[in-house]
């Protein structure tokens, strides 16, 4: 193998590559139908909305990496609760932005600890534990807010919609956040522990890894990211609503899987989240732009996702 082609070969082995390839192809296929500055505008919109998928995707990815059976289904309810609590507390006042953030994070901390208490103390499988806690959380949000839609503080709303050279500021922040979490995953004891537990929990325990503490931290982190998403989303879309988190359940799992993280756990990557989130937004945009009917759109979305996952999966045996 020549010296030049080795980096290329290594790049081709990256599991996250295919989500980006898919996103780029879909974007190129959309451009001919978007006159003038359209191509750039599509990308701006894609980064704007992919940001929220990535935020919840990071938490979900760490949970899924813990191994088979680990998944957080309480993300949508947590988004709704954190968004409702934060907007109600801030009451549209710039001075209370920090308080709203702390309150949202407090919600996340409580949800995460509660989830893991169900899983560990009551020995309920995570999928059931987080599903049942999501009912409790959602009901709390309904009782607390009753669908209350209070305007977010103007400064916070401005921050979530601000742009630099067409690039959303929030997206830049979340790219940095993803890079940081990538370091956490691959370079810290905590991150390595998550991967080790995902590969073999028993072996990890015997090797002296603090399995319980790591799992607790991971579920808390997932709830914290969901709360962050709820906080930012309610500011971005002009207030919290009861169903604001609804679509983030499947989306959070989809960006993890399409991004090349193993559903079976023990193997994860951060860049794929961005590729997958952009990809998911751009597919809908492309099919909307083509003006296809809803039925055909859903079929094509399914087929394209299968194609990308197959392409990414086809590389796995090389590792």
């Amino acid at each position: 193998m020549s010296a030049l082609s080795r980096p290329l070969a290594r790049l081709l082995e990256k599991p996250w590559l295919w989500a980006f390839v898919g996103a780029a192809l879909v974007w190129l296929a959309t451009i001919p139908f978007t006159p003038g500055r359209g191509a750039g505008d599509v990308l701006t919109a894609a980064f704007t909305f992919a940001t929220f998928f990535v935020i919840v995707g990071i938490g979900q990815m760490f949970v899924i990496t813990l191994g088979p059976g680990n998944v957080d289904l309480s993300i949508p309810a947590t988004i709704t609760l954190a968004g409702s609590v934060a907007t109600k507390l801030m009451d549209g006042q710039d001075a209370l932005i920090a308080l709203g953030f702390v309150a949202a994070m407090g919600c996340g901390l409580a949800v995460g600890v509660f989830n893991y208490a169900l899983i560990r103390a009551l020995r309920i499988p995570p999928i059931i534990a987080t599903l049942s806690s999501s009912f409790i959380i959602q009901s709390t949000a309904i009782a607390y807010g009753r669908g209350l839609r209070i305007k977010p503080p103007p400064a916070l709303a401005e921050f979530t919609t601000a742009r630099v050279l067409g690039m959303p500021v929030l997206a830049i922040c979340v790219i940095v956040l993803a890079a940081l979490m990538s370091v956490v995953l691959h370079r810290t004891i905590y991150g390595r522990s998550v991967i080790a537990i995902g590969q073999n929990q028993r072996a990890a325990r015997l090797a002296g890894i603090a399995v319980d503490r790591t799992r607790l931290a991971t579920y808390v982190m997932s709830a914290l990211f969901a709360s962050l998403c709820g906080y930012l989303l309610s500011a971005f879309s002009g207030g919290a609503s009861l169903n604001m988190g609804e679509e983030y359940l499947l989306a959070s799992i989809a960006v993890v899987v399409i991004g090349g993280t193993s559903v079976a756990g023990g193997f994860a990557n951060l860049p794929g989240l961005w590729g997958a989130a952009l990809f998911l937004f751009l597919i809908v945009t492309m099919l909307n732009t083509y003006g296809l009917g809803a039925g055909i759109r859903y079929v094509l979305t399914g087929l394209i996702i299968i194609a990308v996952i197959t392409a990414a999966g086809g590389r796995k045996p090389l590792r």
């Binding site: 599509v42 169903n243 679509e247 937004f281 909307n288």
Partner: peptide, 23 residues
């Protein structure tokens, strides 16, 4: 000249419209 599905939801409608507007 364009059709999107907003699912009767502000956030979904906002995203769908933002996506199709450039075209």
């Amino acid at each position: 000249v364009g059709t999107v599905h907003g699912d009767w939801d502000q956030a979904v409608a906002q995203r769908a419209v933002a996506g199709i507007l450039p075209s």
